[in-house]
Design a protein around this nucleic acid. Structure first.
Lengths: 300, 300
DNA sequence: AAATTGTTTTTTCACGATAAAAGACATTAT
DNA sequence: ATAATGTCTTTTATCGTGAAAAAACAATTT
């Protein structure tokens, strides 16, 4: 088995959801851009949809015959990319404890354990190395540096540097820039979430990322924008890992975001700086409290 | 051919140079650490040295029989890692012109052209992507973002942010920290180079990197330290590319470094800031002047 | 003529295989 | 007893291969 067809399966599932809305499908190239895949994949999708009696397909005519049923969908787990599978596996091991700093990482063992080829694991580790959690020994193994307090502090130091600068750049953007519209929309979403925080608090994580990415983009600096990938990755797993007081934490954060948004809209650099600092401080605090103090290595 | 033995060849060459100094070689593990390779490789080296009559080797006894001749060495080009070969090839194409932003990068074509497997090229591109010059389209090709003015500005913006912070951290280091010894040594090297700048100006590049890395290390932040890889890479190729007024530029830079060093030693944060800013400003200027203004795309 | 469909070619992605290099274990020498 | 050498095992680095997916080209349709 050389390559899984997860691209096809994922696009197929998304296409099924599209079916609900229309009576007939658009042209192949149009479907391609809509689903973000090539025409080759679109045609495979259409071919299968015809086979399973979902549509009739004759050149341009693509008529929907019936609504998709649950069993028309490919199982979720078959739609993940290999990279996602490897990342999840790797992070699970990393966060599950027993992953002390200094421990060495074995490509072959990882590959066997996850059930994938070594090449994919190697490529994953290379990509992952930019997050600063692992390091390669030339011609030899990788070393785990550990998800430690030091790591969190170094990460947040850069984050604060970058975000303060981005926020200032944001506030200085001309009134006719489209970011203000985006900001208004985000503000609405925040207000909505604040109102229903009791039930929807777990939706904050996604909103948080969109909000901060919008701000970082104002820096117009690829290194700043790209660095948010590191933050997003860490927070993504952090949210999954640390569920303690999630509701309270998110409620506070939403409030801070709203104040931050107000400050940005005021375009008063002093206020922006203060609101940004305040939010970043509590974000750092949250992250730090979730990291157990590194125990001294116990000799058995 | 699955893997070149460049590690062995490079270590062999370095071991030959060691031969000049001693009459007999140390133990295998010792040689290993000295050369930075495993004992397996050390033993291959010793085996060959015995074959070619350079030494006698019987267990612990490793006696040097004769001085190594030029033809004992493996050719330089056989000691490079694949990664180095690919990087050079890639950068040559990139800087040779005709590499417009937006152009797409073809793994297979690159691999064929360089004469290596696609896996190595893929891994190189993944590693290289953190430099911000290329970007991956999901499930598809890489896109060249170009070595443009915008790139240089974004790069230097971060560099300045990081270095100012590192320099301040440096100046605040306790008197008994070993960095002050390192700094003294670098100062001496700078003075020496300044005196012989007329003939040794091309040695500045290497000194420059060591100096700035020392400063960045004071930040004790892996992201700052790692970011210097990006700067070093760019400056490395920039020095090769832009030879205009190299002597003058380097002479100025050495002077700025010396002033910078003085400022650090004074531990006066104001002076450090000023000296750092001054040097970074001229470094930025040098980089920018070497980048041709992006011509508007000409339709033929 | 422009867009869409049909067909073919090329490229990317992922694997298993293999030599180089590292590492582990057993044996011998100081 | 420690540290070296000798031997064997495991891991890493790299390639060729083949299926999935993209892209290019040709033939239709509106």
């Amino acid at each position: 088995m050389s390559k899984s067809n997860n691209v096809y399966k994922d696009a197929y599932n998304r296409c099924l959801r599209l079916l609900d809305e229309t009576r007939s499908l658009p042209s192949e190239p149009e479907l391609g851009t809509l689903l973000g895949v090539s025409r080759t994949t679109v045609r495979s999708i259409l071919a299968r949809m015809e086979e399973t009696g979902l549509i009739t397909w004759n050149k341009r005519a693509k008529t929907v015959l019936r609504e998709p049923r649950p069993d028309d969908f490919f199982p979720e787990e078959e739609t993940d990319t290999l990279a996602e599978i490897i990342e999840r596996s790797f992070m699970r091991r990393l966060l599950a404890g027993g992953a002390e700093a200094g421990m060495q990482i074995n490509e072959l063992e990882l590959a066997r354990e996850i059930g994938v080829g070594t090449t994919s694991v190697r490529e994953f580790l290379i990509r992952f190395s930019r997050f600063g959690l692992i390091e390669k020994r030339r011609n030899s193994h990788w070393v785990l540096k550990g998800f430690t307090r030091a790591f969190a502090l170094e990460l947040t130091e850069i984050r604060e540097m970058f975000e303060l600068r981005s926020a200032a750049a944001f506030a200085a953007l001309p009134q006719d820039s489209t970011v203000w519209v985006d900001l208004d929309r985000l503000e609405d979403e925040h207000r909505l979430l604040a109102r229903e925080i009791a039930t929807r608090f777990n939706e904050f994580s996604e909103l948080d990322e969109r909000f901060h990415r919008l701000i970082h983009r104002a820096s117009r600096n690829r290194f700043i924008v790209d660095f948010y990938d590191v933050i997003a990755m860490i927070f993504h797993y952090h949210y999954q890992w640390n569920k303690a007081q999630e509701r309270e934490r998110n409620e506070v954060a939403v409030g801070e975001h709203l104040a931050y948004i107000e400050a940005l809209k005021s375009r008063d650099l002093g206020k922006v700086d203060a609101a940004c600092r305040k939010h970043l401080k509590s974000a750092r605090h949250t992250l730090l409290t979730s990291i157990p103090e590194s125990r001294p290595l116990q000799k058995s």
